[in-house]
Amino acid sequence: MAQLQIPDFRKSTIVDQVGIEERVSRFNTRSIKKESKVKGLKLVLSMIDLTTLEGKDTEGKVKQMCYKAAHPHDALSGLPTVAAVCVYPTMVGTAKQALAGTGVKVASVSTAFPSGQSTRQVKLLDTKFAVEHGADEIDMVISRGEFLKGNYAFVFDEIAAIKEACGTARLKVIFETGELSTLDNVRRASELAMHAGADFIKTSTGKISPAATMPVTLVMLEAIRDFYYATGKMVGMKPAGGISTAKSGLQYLVMLHETLGADWLTNKWFRFGASSLANDVLMQLVKEKTGVYQSKEYFSAD
């Protein structure tokens, strides 16, 4: 294995916040209609990590969500499944069993999600537990406290250690950008995570607000692009939390396409962490098919 090296932040790009916001507002003016819209919406659906991360989760709830993941809306033919379900480590076994043979992946949060306030040992155990129960993907949180203190080496080592514990499972690194205060910090965290071996970088846990926003996602996408130019390695992106309308889903795809190109337009390299987005996408798809505006009442909650 190649030697992992913490990046030299003196060389990283300084983020131009005004420029980022201007660029984002440009993406939002693109008009996508008719067939392209239907294709785009199906792509959004296929990129969703259907998520339930609540204290009140039960096996029954997880099983039901897994069914929804594999059968988003049977009344409409030709729909893809979602990419994955995202659950707590204790629910991984249940989800894995429920999704056997469907091709839908199981992602598990770990490392004392959502706060990440625990010891390295506990975080490693947490991760190994999820992997042993069959998780295909691990969503870890970084220690934001250590990061904000400037203890970058700590965070770097943490990510590298978890990556090792993941084995073949793909690792998504959550920054909780709502706690990182500045876009420069987001850029720095992105570089740190990618150099430490992250397969995906992810904006938020969905537990605090603001969660995923387009400016933050754009900063991360640009970091991925620069990392790709420097090393030739592709890294995935997962905005999570707060994306609930089909329209914003399409806007993210526009941004993805215009920043990273068509190679990233697949659920191998891009995911939406969301729970209510799927139904809005389904409602729009049915609307495109029937010409009639839809109501939430006629779509299964999960």
């Binding site: 010409g291 009639v292 505006y293 839809q294 109501s295 939430k296 009442e297 006629y298």
Partner: peptide, 8 residues
């Protein structure tokens, strides 16, 4: 027609 057909 949209007033009448809207499912919500």
């Amino acid at each position: 027609s949209h007033f009448a057909s809207h499912m919500d």
